[in-house]
C-alpha cells in the first residue's frame, strides 16, 4: 500500500455545504440514517454517488481499494432507504506519522447544507482518532468554498497551496487536522454512542438522533 499516490495528486475530495434552493428536499435531520460500510451491497451505492457528483473517473478497483482495506472509515447516509451521501477514507504511515486521509466525500445536491457531510466526515475522523492517527489530511480545490468552510469548522487548517495541482490550472489547498496529543481530552460532545466505534467497525449503525449543525 502506498499513500503517496493519494497524497500527491490522484484523488479529488469534493463536498458542498451550499445547495441550490430550488432543489431542496423537505426532511428532518432525524430521518437521516448513518451506516458504516457494511459489505458488497453498499459498493454500488457509493459508486453511483461518486460517479454522479465527481468528475474524476474511478474504476471499481479504486473503490474496492478503500472499502476493503478500511471499511471502518467509510460511511453512508440514507434517507428513506435511498443513499444520499457517502465518505470514503484511508489511513496509514506517512513520514513517521500515522495519518488519516479523506479521499471522497459526497452529499447529493438536494440534501446539502444540512450538516450531513459534516456528520459523515466527523464519524470517519472519530474512528481515525481512536485508531491512533496523529493527523488527517486531504486536498480540496481552492474554488470549493463549501468544502473549505466545512473542514475549517472541524479544525482543519490550510497548510499549503499546491500550484496548478490540477491539470487545467486550478490550485488546491492541502488541509490538515492535527489531533491534540492527549486524545481522551477531546471526546465528541454530540456523539452519544461513542462505544460503537471502538472495535466493531463493520456493524450497522443505527439512526443517529443527534446532529451536528
Amino acid at each position: 500500500m502506498n499513500s503517496e499516490a493519494a497524497e500527491e495528486g490522484t484523488m479529488i475530495t469534493s463536498t458542498s455545504a451550499s445547495a441550490s434552493e430550488s432543489e431542496k428536499v423537505d426532511f428532518s435531520s432525524s430521518e437521516i440514517e448513518y451506516v458504516s460500510y457494511g459489505g458488497e451491497h453498499h459498493l454500488p451505492l457509493i459508486m453511483r454517488l461518486v460517479d454522479e457528483e465527481l468528475s474524476e473517473p474511478y474504476s471499481i478497483f479504486t473503490y474496492r481499494y478503500f472499502v476493503y482495506l478500511w471499511p471502518q472509515l467509510s460511511f453512508l447516509a440514507f434517507h428513506r432507504g435511498t443513499c444520499i451521501g457517502t465518505v470514503v477514507c484511508k489511513m496509514g504511515e506517512h513520514r513517521n506519522t500515522f495519518r488519516g486521509y479523506i479521499a471522497m466525500l459526497v452529499v447529493i445536491k438536494p440534501y446539502r447544507g444540512r450538516g450531513i457531510a459534516t456528520e459523515l466526515v466527523t464519524r470517519s475522523i472519530q474512528v481515525m482518532m481512536e485508531s491512533g492517527c496523529q493527523e488527517v489530511t486531504l486536498e480540496a480545490e481552492v474554488t470549493n468554498k463549501g468544502a473549505l468552510a466545512l473542514y475549517g469548522r472541524l479544525g482543519f487548517i490550510r497548510a499549503k497551496r499546491l500550484f496548478r495541482y490540477y491539470l487545467n490550472g486550478v490550485d488546491a489547498f492541502r488541509l490538515k487536522l492535527l489531533f491534540p496529543p492527549l486524545q481522551n481530552s477531546f471526546l465528541l460532545p454530540m456523539n452519544k454512542n461513542d462505544g460503537h466505534y471502538h472495535q466493531d467497525y463493520l456493524q450497522q449503525e443505527g439512526c443517529s438522533e443527534s446532529h451536528h449543525g
Binding site: G9, I12, S55, E56, T143, Y165, G169
Partner: peptide, 17 residues
Amino acid sequence: GVGPVPPEKGIFPLDHL
C-alpha cells in the same frame, strides 16, 4: 487575474516530490 476553474476530468499524478 484569471479565476481558477474546477477540473473537468481530474488530475494526473505529477512528480510533485
